[in-house]
Nucleic acid binder design. Structure first.
Length: 241
DNA sequence: GCGACAG
DNA sequence: ATCTTGTCGC
């Protein structure tokens, strides 16, 4: 699929923060643009190499609600931005977008392994990517970045609103009985309630919803397979020859 | 100064 | 995120 808009990725901490403030104004946080019926859903994830600064990014497209894999893409890149809480998209964004460019079809909605608007500046990875891809997106993080929430019941489906400055920016959701909840927040072109329903309808007995779980398995599969070095070297050569 | 801090 | 051994529970 094609990327709608872009900005430079070789930025300083200061510039990155400024960019996030500007992008926040463009987010659509309601369901009006969300399709009545969705047929496909995608998940994206990253896997880092230990002995090098290379890492993998994969996108897996699944049929909805069957959760059967339709297509998957994977790319490898060299990390060019450090990991800084709140600026994750500047580290993983470039690779994630490259993986989406290789995807043939356009998913109805995408789930990312990170925050959506439950972010210091309302621009988490899921929101940033959803905006650039111009597609509905949802943030599904395994840990909290910002906000507060009450107790979460321990049955699948139970949840507690995630509050940031008296505003609901997402929810802590139980996706598997007795297992630590995940943090769901709207990315782009979707509201909290709908985001929550979509994620829960994608869970199949594991803590992570299928799209993200499959993407996670794909990147790890590729990394352990050691294809990293070969792929990267090939890409370097073709750039000169 | 101290604690918090997506992946 | 990644590394890493055993261990508790269904």
């Amino acid at each position: 699929m094609k990327i709608q808009q872009l900005h430079r990725w070789d930025v300083t901490y200061r510039e990155a923060v400024s960019i996030q403030h500007g992008l926040k104004e463009k987010l659509v946080l309601h369901d009006e643009d969300f399709p009545e019926q969705i047929t496909t859903i995608a998940g994206a994830d990253i896997s880092y190499s230990t002995q090098s600064d290379l890492f993998f990014a994969a996108v897996v497209l699944l049929a909805y609600p069957a959760m059967e894999i339709i297509e998957e893409t994977c790319v490898t890149q060299r990390a060019s931005f450090p990991y800084i809480p709140g600026l994750l998209s500047f580290r993983e964004g470039p690779a994630v977008l490259e993986a989406f460019e290789k995807l043939q079809s356009v998913p109805d909605v995408v789930i990312f392994d990170g925050q959506g608007i439950a972010h210091p500046r309302g621009m988490g990875l899921a929101s940033h990517m959803g905006l650039f891809l111009d597609v509905p997106s949802i943030g599904c993080a395994k840990k909290r970045l910002v906000g507060v929430h009450g107790k979460v019941g321990h049955v699948v489906g139970d949840y507690a609103d995630l509050l940031l400055d008296d505003h609901v920016v997402g929810a802590a959701v139980r996706t598997k009985n007795r297992v630590k909840p995940v943090f769901i927040s709207p990315g782009h072109k979707i509201g909290t309630r709908r985001a929550l329903d979509v994620v829960l309808s994608c869970c199949r007995g594991y803590r992570l919803p299928e799209p993200v779980r499959q993407a996670h398995m794909t990147v790890n599969r590729k990394r352990l397979k050691g294809v990293s070095l070969d792929d990267f070297m090939t890409k370097q050569k073709t750039g000169f020859e």
